[in-house]
Design a protein around this nucleic acid. Structure first.
Ligand code: ZN
Ligand code: ZN
Ligand code: ZN
Ligand code: ZN
Lengths: 130, 130
DNA sequence: AATTTATTGTTATAATATAACATTATGTAA
DNA sequence: TTACATAATGTTATATTATAACAATAAATT
């Protein structure tokens, strides 16, 4: 079986919803929004989310338990993510900075740990909320 | 009322438990462990955790919903945290790297966002698990 | 002592996420 | 094209994480 490239029905429905959303979406809000399309149970949502995260189409914002679509041109960086989060309006933006990702990819700690992945969340106030 | 410096009873009980623990502790595991000391309800645990996080005595590992004591000499960096997480044994270590924190503190994104805080989680395999 | 603020106690409930098992669809290979 | 393996789905139940609401106590401030 070749590596999945097309999304399945549930994955596509849920990806489309998240992709259209201007802000991160939470699992049960997603569930509510796709019930009219026949996705009735939390597990159906979580399974699609898991797969979409795995293949890099969406990212989980850990501090918010919410999901956003990747906009780094079908993210090659599912394993190297950085976000800015406004603590007032909760706007979340994926950061794509070559310098930052290079710095973090090359970061070595004292314990000789080998990293395969990182996630960075910056918090502050966006332009509007300042 | 001056800024709290001593911990209250519940805060101290819960901090001591987390501080002794070799690994991050989850809220309900904490609850279970402090019930013999009279802390009976989840909310009592979460309130203490919130305060301990706020004053920098502990940190939340967002990707694990778990808490560890700060070991950066009573952390001045509750607002600038970095951790390494082994994906096999789940060992978590707080990273204290002057270079890293300087780089991240000075990081500026394109949108002109003003950051007051960040959290970085590295994932990989620790020495033992490699 | 009176007032304000922080902390605690308690019950109930909300929000997030997974277990277990049956079924259906899809890809691979004889 | 049939058999086999793997991936995705459907469904019910339940586990885990976290907060709402309100009453009572304790501690700091005036
Ligand atoms: Zn991305
Ligand atoms: Zn904002
Ligand atoms: Zn610390
Ligand atoms: Zn390990």
């Amino acid at each position: 079986m070749q590596k999945q490239t097309l999304l399945t029905k549930n994955q596509q429905i849920i990806f489309d919803l998240i992709d259209k959303s201007p802000e991160p979406m939470k699992a049960y809000s997603i569930l509510f929004n796709v019930q009219k399309k026949g996705i009735k149970a939390p597990l159906q949502v979580y399974r699609a989310l898991d797969k979409l995260v795995e293949i890099g189409k969406i990212h989980k914002i850990e501090s918010r338990n919410a999901f956003i679509a990747c906009h780094n041109s079908s993210c090659q960086v599912a394993k190297a993510t950085a976000f800015s989060i406004c603590e007032i309006c909760e706007k979340v933006t994926e950061i794509s900075s070559a310098g930052l990702s290079k710095y973090l990819a090359n970061f070595k700690d004292k314990d000789g740990m080998k990293y395969s992945k990182y996630n960075l969340e910056f918090f502050g106030l966006c332009k509007k909320c300042r």
